[in-house]
Nucleic acid binder design. Structure first.
Lengths: 254, 254
DNA sequence: GATATAATAAACATTTTAGAACATAAATCA
DNA sequence: TGATTTATGTTCTAAAATGTTTATTATATC
């Protein structure tokens, strides 16, 4: 019910301008606390702007990515991973962000930072960072994928070849306990190989549901890179085996 | 039986919007668990979006550029220009679209076309065309401008150097009656020079309010290109002088 | 700048929903 | 026919969403 209401709240606020919490609570027949929680979630997604007492339509928001609404699984875990990832990025560095919802969570945390350069193929990540205003965003060229708002293809790969970054955060569709990282798209895997070459240190960001799962292509092993950032739902056993395999695991706590 | 029901569920949700699980269970006279299993299957197929408590139709619209709603001046004129411009693009061609609201109007008209390749630096144009689904979209890489959702910089220019297109539509901030085309940004002007080189035929699209106005940089003359597409508010005098200067003017009527 | 007022967020309780496990009925096939 | 798969139903537990109360924080008013 809450996802449907979120959408309605956004529309309501956009059509009527600034709305008070109690007005929204009456309008949607829920408690004010529920509305507040909705508003927190919506403002984190950048779809509205919170004010004291209510919420207003966002003005500077350039674009809105509808597809993210359904995709967002493990939102809380991903946000924590984002916080942990952002914490290891010093100001002034150049960061490569892979496309995906986990890396998008990292981008959200980096949004308010200054003097950062972010290289990405993801339109939502570019959008989030542009909203923040403090980051230089380099969008790699390429073919816009039909199903998802990110870029791929020969141009993307050749664009990347001339670039260097300090840190890369890449997502994964599966990780086994030997530290092998899997991806469900061949194109993505090939691009990620270039990403890995372009960055001095590489972190894989993935919520714990990706552990002990595999996907179409293996594109590398965590032991060769800087480490894995995951959430605290990783089991002690999984953690133990990964560490014994020589994988550096950063567990994001709340 | 469940295949038939799946189809009906999709149609039901599409026509009525978000539906709760219990409503669907009653509607189809099955248990809630069955509906949940249906919804799991359907969402895996991407035909609906699950929500807590029910399901919603999948959004076809992937993203939307908020800023355009307010900015659109001379919307009607621009739409007409878009129609006229789209009419001169044969299927199967490669088109370069400059960023701007007029070229965006062109993109809107091209959205439903098939077998077209569009090269652009504009995120809104990419969005509009992705929604259409029939166009291959090549987004040039570059730095995302802070004020507007489009790309520029050395990467954009070098990306363009390796490409060839059949037709380019470029916008303008001002056009004088000798056919000189002006632009208010130096960077844009430099990029447009490359655009002009990459395309076999170049059209300038600009509503008539841009006539007899100049801006920061002159980036070329209409007589060297294929022509100007403008709306019917151009005065007979302006038209006369332009034609006498050797400018091919296409006037978009309703 | 102190105080009153209102709004927020945290903590806990309650309700609702999801999903797992198992049971049952119908359909398919050897 | 009997065995086996497939679809559906039932029950139960965990998780998610919402509501309620209470402290904390922000805003406004004097």
């Amino acid at each position: 019910m809450q996802l449907a209401r979120h959408q309605q709240i956004v529309e309501f606020i956009q059509s009527s301008g600034h709305c008070a919490v109690d007005v929204l609570a009456r309008e949607f027949s829920v408690s004010e606390m529920t509305i507040r929680r909705d508003l927190i979630a919506l403002s984190e997604e950048g779809r509205i702007a919170r004010t004291h007492g209510g919420a207003a339509p966002v003005e500077q928001v350039l674009f809105e990515f509808e597809f993210l609404r359904r995709v967002q699984e493990n939102r809380v875990a991903k946000t924590r991973i984002g916080v942990a990832a952002a914490a290891i990025v010093p100001d002034g560095k150049t960061v490569i962000l892979d496309s995906g919802t986990t890396t998008l969570a990292v981008a959200r945390q980096l949004g308010s930072r200054r003097r950062l350069t972010v290289i990405t193929t993801s339109l939502p990540i570019a959008a989030v960072l542009q909203r923040g205003g403090g980051t230089e965003i380099l969008l790699l060229g390429g073919i816009l994928r039909r199903e998802s708002p990110d870029l791929e293809g020969p141009l993307t790969e050749s664009n990347l070849e001339g670039l260097r970054a300090d840190i890369a955060f890449v997502g994964a569709d599966g990780i086994d306990l030997s530290g092998n990282v899997y991806n469900s798209s061949l194109n993505t895997a090939r691009l990620l190989e270039k990403v890995v070459k372009a960055a001095s240190s590489v972190y894989v960001v993935a919520d714990s549901s990706k552990l002990e799962r595999t996907a179409l292509t293996k594109f590398g092993n965590l032991t060769a890179w800087r480490g894995l950032i995951t959430d605290s739902s990783v089991t002690p056993e999984q953690l133990d085996i990964l560490l014994k395999s020589g994988v550096n695991v950063i567990v994001a706590h709340d």
